[in-house]
């Protein structure tokens, strides 16, 4: 049986926590920007203008057709040099984290957009008609009547997608960005206890995601009863 030695973990907590902060940073930023951008893309997709609709569809289909790792590699190899060149900045770690946030935001936006689009379409067709009949403009109707209802319906799905995003941030492993999992790996390799650290990281992710997804499920069940 393997000889477990968990001692490096308590000592490394500050280091691991720093990594977790990066993970949370990326998750929160990508979620907010992703949902914002996703809403715009979803509305574009539902537009009667064929060009606008096609552009939006193209964006969504492109980002959903490629692995996230590919997108991250694209961003880490190409974008930092672009940013450095455009802004004449020194190549610091911050640029890397920013690239990661941009990459995740753009990627997640494609997935959020599909959820939001379905959410908007699930609002009864008569609602927008009723709003327009009251004299609201299309923009007002969307903002005051359709989107609030749509978001209430799709919040569980958006949250589930965010939990997936939280898990996906571990893929920054392929870059120089040090997130929670990256930090765990560094500690594990440095102290020769990679097995314990990987299992520890797995357990942490499991607890966080399991609790969050259970809460989302409870919320969904309550919504179903209320409907």
């Amino acid at each position: 049986m393997y000889d477990f030695d968990w001692s490096p973990i308590p000592r490394a907590i500050p280091f691991l926590w720093a990594g977790m902060k990066v993970t949370l940073q990326i998750t929160v930023v990508a979620m907010l920007v992703g949902i914002g951008l996703g809403t715009v893309i979803a509305i574009m997709r539902l537009s009667k203008n064929r060009v606008v609709s096609a552009l939006s569809a193209g964006y969504v289909n492109l980002f959903r057709a490629v692995p996230l790792i590919m997108v991250l590699l694209w961003f880490f190899l190409i974008v930092p040099s672009l940013i450095v060149r455009i802004f004449n900045l020194p190549r610091t770690a911050n640029v890397q984290v920013t690239s990661a946030m941009v990459a995740f935001s753009l990627f997640q936006a494609a997935y959020y957009a599909e959820i939001i689009r379905a959410g908007i379409q699930s609002v009864k067709a008569g609602q927008i008609g009723a709003a327009l009949a009251l004299g609201m403009s299309y923009g007002q109707a969307m903002r005051l009547v359709v989107l609030p209802q749509a978001f209430r319906n799709m919040t569980p799905l958006l949250l589930t997608q965010t939990i997936i995003l939280f898990q996906d941030t571990s893929l920054v492993y392929v870059s120089a960005v040090r997130d929670f999992f990256g930090a765990a790996n560094i500690v594990g390799t440095r102290d020769g206890r990679i097995v314990e650290l990987i299992l520890f990281a797995g357990a942490v992710y499991f607890v966080i995601c399991f609790v969050l997804s259970t809460l989302v499920k409870r919320w969904q069940d309550r919504l179903k009863v209320a409907a």
Partner: peptide
């Protein structure tokens, strides 16, 4: 529950290293 709440990358490392 176990396989959906642990990131894929972490699972891969578990299979390969652990």
């Amino acid at each position: 529950e176990v396989f959906r709440n642990i990131p894929l990358l972490v699972q891969l490392f578990i299979w390969y290293f652990v």
